[in-house]
Nucleic acid binder design. Structure first.
Lengths: 144, 144
DNA sequence: GGCAATTCAATTGCATACAATTAAACTACC
DNA sequence: GGTAGTTTAATTGTATGCAATTGAATTGCC
């Protein structure tokens, strides 16, 4: 019951369900993120800022696995919305420092509801979630 | 050691590593897919075609979790490359039938090397891979 | 000190993704 | 048989993503 093309079957891929699952879950975030007027990419960028307050684009990109080509427009949007500021570092003008504004800080209290609402949408056993989390980070480590 | 914002920490998310992991793995495909001049989206579309030969856009979208807004331009590209044809169904002109061409069929022999090369790039225990596959499909089921 | 190499963010070009709308075709129902 | 509702792709508009390039700033090295 095997043929030489088995490896090409969609159902035999590991990448495909990963790709599809990520998209579907990000899509589920949308209604909740709409309430606080953030896209998913803006949301994860804010997440880092809430932890760090100040960070440059390169380091932010390392956290998020995104490059400046993606981040620059996202950060400009967040700047427009007054959640962050973008300023060249005095000591090294190549670096653009992203800083949280007071408005950005305040958004945190509204955003904290998002993960709560999401967890109600994803039906997964707690121990499976822990496992999945672990294995995904193990795979991510390989990309560094 | 917990605070009210713990749920907002990037490292506590399940969606983020899923999202990042999917992107990183798709990126790892790129050099192999470049060799056969396919993008990842074109590749997974071809994968379905190699299994099905004929399918309409809607049903293809259900397999791939993609809508016509994404698929139409992808399929037009594959048509340009002569791997598929797009024709309105005689019996119901709303349906666009995607069919594999002989060139598309022939590409399969080259494409079958891609999963082989990829598996050498992803370092994961076989039983973990099976488990991951299972849990991802379980999550995907919830999006139907 | 001066120049080559490196670093960083921004830009460009291309390819997704998806929500919302549109237009054409078909179905149901009377 | 006519019309309202439904279905299917395509289109439009917005937001990513990423490779490659650019330009400014900095560092290394002699």
């Amino acid at each position: 019951m095997t043929d030489k093309y088995d490896a090409l079957k969609l159902e035999n891929q590991l990448c495909f369900p990963l790709y599809a699952c990520a998209k579907e879950i990000v899509r589920k975030y949308k209604p909740f993120l709409d309430e606080i007027d953030l896209t998913y990419t803006q949301y994860i960028a804010m997440m880092v800022l809430w932890e760090r307050e100040k960070i440059n684009v390169k380091e932010l990109g390392e956290y998020l696995y995104l490059d400046s080509g993606t981040l620059t427009p996202v950060l400009k949007k967040l700047e427009q919305k007054k959640y962050i500021t973008r300023t060249r570092a005095k000591d090294d003008e190549r670096n653009v420092i992203i800083s949280l504004t007071k408005e950005g800080e305040m958004l945190r209290d509204k955003a904290v509801e998002v993960p709560k609402k999401m967890s109600a949408c994803i039906n997964i056993e707690p121990d499976e979630a822990v496992w999945l989390h672990k294995i995904l980070y193990k795979l991510l480590e390989q990309s560094k």
